[in-house]
Amino acid sequence: MKRHSVLPGFGLTLGFTLLYLSLIVLIPLSATFLKTSTIGWERFWHTVTEPRVLASYRLSFGASFIGALINAVMGLIVAWVLVRYSFPGRRLVDALVDFPFALPTAVAGITLTTLFTRTGWLGRYLEPLGIHVAFSPLGVVIALTFIGLPFVVRTVQPVLQNLDQEIEEAAVSLGAGRWETWRRVILPEVWPALLTGFALAFARAVGEYGSVVFISGNMPMKTEITTLLIITKLEQYDYAGATSIGVVMLGISFMLLLAVNLLQWWSNKRHA
């Protein structure tokens, strides 16, 4: 309950907070769910299980999963290197890790596409090998890896920083080799943070739009992500269709948010 406080402004600030939150976030989100009820269950279900929509889920979730997995492995290595080793330019590299967060997604999209086309800086080496990145599902994976890159690094990094090196020394003095110490002492400590970073990268990737639409080529059934389908339906004035898919995406976002919260709760409990 509200404690009697000498500090002013509780009513005013909480009131404004609730009002602003309701107007900007809660009412618009609820209105979207309400809108679905006017569509009717049958039509809703038909829309969200169309083959073209199902194909988009497969791509969105599959590519997000692979991207988050790449980030989990590489992010762990990057975090480890940044925390444990010193090398020239370490601080610069550390600051640069956040670049995908700071770079607008549309810029990321056109840049990655240009890099991986036939004449691009990277594409010119990959295309002769038969590796087509631009306008293929692989391109979607690359874009989603790019935008998810900072998540794992930034969740794992503080855990590694606060890891007590004494427990590693204890493991060594008990006869464990470096690899065994790593696998049985360090990895279990880092595991919850690593999973959280993975889940955050995955959640971000599933809803991503800007960085993907340029590189994917947007071929129906092949390289069309779910968020693009929402926009396509809107452009065809199919509001019911857009809403149905949008609500599915919202539901998935909320489930992922719940999963991330549970993971963080687990992680905190272990580090408490």
Partner: peptide, 21 residues
């Protein structure tokens, strides 16, 4: 948690909710 909600919503869906309103 509610204040954090907009971060977990896809940008496209964020736009969509205002179109529906």
């Amino acid at each position: 948690t509610l204040i954090d909600l907009p971060f977990s919503v896809s940008p496209v869906v964020s736009g969509l909710v205002y179109v529906l309103l």
